[in-house]
């Protein structure tokens, strides 16, 4: 290939990759003018740690047992937005315990890793939430959970007086503990719920033994799909065969695991849903040595699991429906699965 051809391909690749990129309305010069007036004193990084920063998202983070820069008020959102932006935390007001924002960890001072302000903002940006929202540390009341005020990291527009956080979904399935998620929606003064969003509180982990995974019992018979709902994340767990044998030292235990990024999880779910159903199909699977993959998808309808026999006929099941791993959809699934770093089947 000549340089000209290579350059042409490179140029086309750049064009294709950026064709859909448009500067959002976020790029108003107002912030720049403000910057000129104030010369931007405190960096936003300290503002994030101080609990107040102009960040483009709504979000809530629980499970903090920390002291931090906070409002003294404890009645719902009152006082949450009283403190000014970009004010460093006062002495003694520090983050004492790390917390997660998306897939990064905001660590206490001196902890590692310490994400940059840009990294935190990038994570929050993924929530695709209104401009002007801020990350705040505050004491709030969640009426549905407890009348007692508790401290939280939360994201707020600071423009919705009386808004509160309401848990909207819980997951009763046996695998729920691997996600420990909670879905919240912001309720404004009109009482109408806003767009719910989900926060992943802990790094998902596979159950060590497949016997404790609960089985694929979460499928809804009413659903025509193996994975029902908008997929937001996933976890891939591979288990040794439960059948003891000379080559199987650890029957039924975890062989490998991989977190599935949101987009990849969505694509895998789409491919799985496109697999042909197994109803009425007679199968003979002599090569099935019992290796099982458990795919746990985090969806708008709660966590859902699909169990896959990774050897033999590649049967996919969710407890209500069964599909056969064949055809173009299976090829797509395998291609997507190959992006995960997994142990080989043996």
């Amino acid at each position: 290939m000549t340089d000209t051809e290579l350059i042409a391909r490179f140029r086309q690749a750049c064009e294709d990759a950026t064709d859909a990129v448009e500067a959002p309305s976020l790029f108003v010069p107002a912030r720049a003018r403000r910057a000129r007036r104030t010369r931007w004193g405190a960096p936003l990084a300290s503002a994030v740690l101080a609990g107040g920063a102009a960040l483009g998202a709504f979000m809530l983070q629980q499970q903090l047992g920390a002291t931090a820069h906070r409002s003294d008020a404890t009645v719902q959102f009152a006082g949450v937005c009283d403190s000014p932006y970009n004010v460093p935390a006062r002495p003694g007001h520090v983050i004492a315990k790390g917390f997660r924002v998306g897939d990064i960890v905001v660590a206490p001072a001196g902890g590692t890793p310490v994400p940059s302000e840009a990294t935190v903002r990038a994570q929050l940006r993924k929530a695709d939430l209104p401009v002007g929202a801020q990350l705040r540390w505050a004491s709030i009341i969640e009426p549905a959970l407890s009348p007692t005020a508790t401290d939280h990291w939360l994201l707020t527009s600071c423009g919705q007086p009386g808004a509160f956080l309401r848990p909207t979904a819980t997951d009763p399935s046996p695998m729920s503990r691997i996600y420990q998620t909670a879905t919240y929606s912001v309720v404004g003064p009109t009482g109408q719920p806003g767009q719910p969003f989900t926060v992943q509180l802990n790094q998902p982990q596979c159950p060590h033994r497949i016997g404790t995974a609960g089985g694929p019992s979460n499928g809804k018979p009413s659903s025509a799909r193996l994975v029902d709902g908008h997929v937001t994340a996933g976890l891939f767990c591979r288990y040794y065969s439960v059948l003891p044998g000379p080559g199987n030292k650890y029957p039924g235990t975890e062989h490998g695991a991989a977190g599935i990024p949101p987009d990849l999880a969505a694509a895998m779910a789409k491919a799985i849903n496109a697999l042909p159903p197994a109803s009425g199909v007679a199968m003979s699977c002599p090569n099935d040595i019992g290796v099982t993959d458990v795919l746990s998808f985090q969806t708008s309808n709660g966590p859902q699991q699909v169990w896959v026999s990774a050897t033999g006929c590649n049967v996919f099941k969710n407890g209500a429906r069964v599909a056969i791993g064949s055809g173009p959809a299976m090829a797509t699934y395998l291609e997507l699965r190959a992006r995960l770093v997994l142990p080989s089947v043996r």
Partner: peptide, 24 residues
């Protein structure tokens, strides 16, 4: 910026910062 950084989020942040510096 997207091609330089490899992702839109970082590029947007950097561009906003760059525009602020430009304004000054």
């Amino acid at each position: 910026g997207v091609l330089l950084f490899g992702n839109q989020g970082d590029a947007e942040d950097a561009l906003q910062d760059g525009l602020e510096k430009t304004w000054r």
